[in-house]
């Protein structure tokens, strides 16, 4: 049962390990000073807004414990909203409210929560319960994304999002993360979510993987994964590619969702994106990153291709690897 891959074969497939990611991709491309831009989701959001990148609309920010008193009144105007910690990681501490039921709030799952428990959650967020290193934090209140129905049967409870790895501005690999009953509605692959590799050229599903094993159907909804197509694909890739100009980070994971009305929205950026995307695609990152690197080096001294040209290059050349 306890098997190990042959390092030579992984090498040939161009699979990138943790050390290579950290030493070759993150260290030279992601300046430490830029991390706060992505580790703090409020900063990311404001920065994206400034550069005209579509993000879920910011409703308010709860910065101090005494703001909690006004929270009830503030939320009256917003029947649906999301509260999340600015410095959270891995989707921790996010509360989604889809509607009001009298004095109570209702989550998308149908569960009802009271204003007290929302206040308590926000208070915990402020004192740093969900932030990296337990540092004091602020709570972001933003609009709830009206998810497109295209993925309705592809996800159980949770929200499907698209993760695109962007290397020096070039999208190099993409996958869709579908939550399952086993993953408890979360989109983390190691918790049992399904990863679906997405063809960079077309936005069509390549293969599905759960717990490292190939699957053809969603385990809960029984939908054929091969029927999955991401709409507005090139818009989505361009959104991801532009996050490079905005943050200056050379190796980045962009998490994107698709809103029924507004199209692709950037949910968050990650300066240390995981490597499970390789398993979802059944391909190694290395050759693609190598090609993107070469292409980027063809445009030295800060001159670079426009985001749409980079997306074109990704769909035409990088996608073929």
């Amino acid at each position: 049962m306890l098997g190990f891959a042959s390092p030579l074969r992984l090498r040939r497939m161009g699979v990138v390990g943790m050390n290579r990611r950290n030493v070759r991709y993150i260290a030279p491309n992601n300046a430490r000073s830029l991390y706060p831009l992505v580790d703090n989701k409020l900063k990311t959001k404001l920065l994206c807004d400034e550069h005209g990148i579509a993000v879920p609309r910011l409703l308010g920010v709860c910065r101090f414990q005494h703001h909690l008193r006004e929270l009830d009144e503030f939320l009256h105007e917003h029947p649906s909203f999301v509260i999340k910690p600015a410095k959270g990681s891995g989707g921790k501490g996010i509360v989604v409210v889809s509607s009001r039921q009298g004095r109570n709030f209702q989550k998308p799952s149908g569960e009802q929560i009271t204003i007290q428990s929302i206040k308590r959650h926000t208070s915990n967020t402020l004192s740093g319960l969900y932030s990296l290193g337990g540092k004091p934090d602020v709570a972001i209140i933003e609009e709830m994304v009206q998810f497109t129905d295209d993925f309705a049967d592809f996800s159980f409870e949770g929200v499907p999002d698209v993760r695109v790895i962007v290397y020096r501005g070039y999208p190099v690999m993409a996958m869709m993360r579908l939550s399952t009953h086993a993953s408890d509605g979360k989109a983390n692959l190691h918790q049992g979510a399904v990863g679906v590799g997405i063809d960079l050229a077309s936005g069509r599903a390549l293969q599905g993987v759960q717990h490292g094993h190939l699957i053809t159907h969603h385990p809960d909804t029984e939908r054929r994964l091969s029927e999955l197509v991401v709409p507005q694909w090139s818009d989505l890739l361009e959104l991801a590619a532009r996050s490079y100009e905005v943050t200056g980070l050379g190796y980045i994971g962009a998490d994107i969702v698709i809103d029924r009305a507004r199209g692709p929205l950037l949910l968050e950026l990650n300066a240390r994106p995981g490597l499970a995307i390789q398993m979802a695609n059944g391909k190694g990152l290395e050759p693609r990153v190598g090609l993107a690197e070469q292409r980027a080096n063809d445009y030295p001294d800060g001159r670079q291709e426009s985001a749409s040209d980079r997306v074109l290059y990704a769909t035409e050349s990088i996608a073929a690897l």
């Binding site: 190990f4 891959a5 390092p7 992984l10 699979v15 094993h213 398993m279």
Partner: peptide
């Protein structure tokens, strides 16, 4: 741990 994790990819 990488070798273990990516073993299914083979």
């Amino acid at each position: 741990s990488d070798l273990r994790r990516f073993q299914p990819m083979e």
